[in-house]
C-alpha cells in the first residue's frame, strides 16, 4: 500500500501537472509494459482517487485531487491502448513543445444555425438578392457579385446586401475568378 500524501505534496503536484507527460503522471518508464502501466494506475489510484477524499471538507485539497486524478485516468486510458500510445509517443518525439496531452483531430460542429440571410423590402431588390445568394451558395462568386450589385441599386441603404456583396467580392478574389465582364 502506498503512503498517503500530505496536502502540500498534493497541491505541489497539481501545480506542475501541465508540464508532466503521461509517463511522468503515472511514474512509469517509457518502456513500461501493459502490466506495469496497470500496476502504476492502481498504485496512484489508491493514493489519489477522489473517493479517498470524499468526506473531507477541504475544498482546495479536493479540487487539486480531482485535477490530478483526471490526468491519471487519462494517462492510463492512453497508455493501455497500443494504438493511442503509439500516436502519443510519436507526438512526444515530434517536438519538445508539443502538448503533454494526446492531441485530437478537429471536427466541424453540427446542429448549426448559420447567419440568417438578409432580406430586402423592395421586390426587385429581393429578386436579385435571391439570385445572388443562390449563386454564392453554388460557388459562382462573380455571378453573385453581379446580382448583389443590382440588388443594392434597388435598395441602396440595405446593410445585409452590402455585407453579402463584400463577401462575394472577397471570395471571387480569393478564387481568382475576377472575371472582367467586358473581356472577350
Amino acid at each position: 500500500m502506498a503512503d498517503a500524501l500530505k496536502k502540500d505534496e498534493i497541491l505541489g503536484l497539481a501545480s506542475v501537472l501541465a508540464s508532466l507527460d503521461y509517463y511522468q503522471v503515472l511514474k512509469v518508464d517509457r518502456k513500461a509494459v501493459l502490466n506495469d502501466v496497470k500496476k502504476a494506475f492502481f498504485r496512484e489510484s489508491q493514493v489519489l482517487h477522489p473517493d479517498k477524499f470524499f468526506a473531507s471538507s477541504d475544498v482546495e485539497l479536493k479540487g487539486a485531487v480531482m485535477t490530478i486524478y483526471k490526468r491519471i485516468a487519462e494517462a492510463y486510458a492512453v497508455l493501455r491502448d497500443p494504438e493511442m500510445r503509439a500516436k502519443y509517443d510519436a507526438q512526444i518525439a515530434a517536438g519538445a513543445d508539443a502538448s503533454k496531452r494526446l492531441e485530437k483531430r478537429e471536427a466541424p460542429t453540427g446542429g448549426n444555425v448559420p447567419a440568417a440571410d438578409p432580406k430586402a423590402k423592395n421586390s426587385q431588390a429581393q429578386k436579385y438578392l435571391q439570385l445572388g445568394l443562390m449563386a454564392l451558395r453554388k460557388g459562382d462568386f462573380s455571378g453573385a457579385e453581379m446580382n448583389l450589385q443590382f440588388a443594392l441599386k434597388f435598395e441602396p441603404g440595405n446593410d445585409g446586401i452590402a455585407k453579402k456583396l463584400a463577401e462575394a467580392k472577397e471570395k471571387a478574389k480569393a478564387k481568382g475568378d475576377t472575371k472582367d465582364p467586358y473581356k472577350i
Partner: peptide, 13 residues
C-alpha cells in the same frame, strides 16, 4: 474511467 475530462476543437460548418 471516471472522473475524466476531454476537450476537442470544433470548427464552424
Amino acid at each position: 474511467p471516471v472522473p475524466t475530462d476531454q476537450s476537442r476543437i470544433f470548427t464552424t460548418s
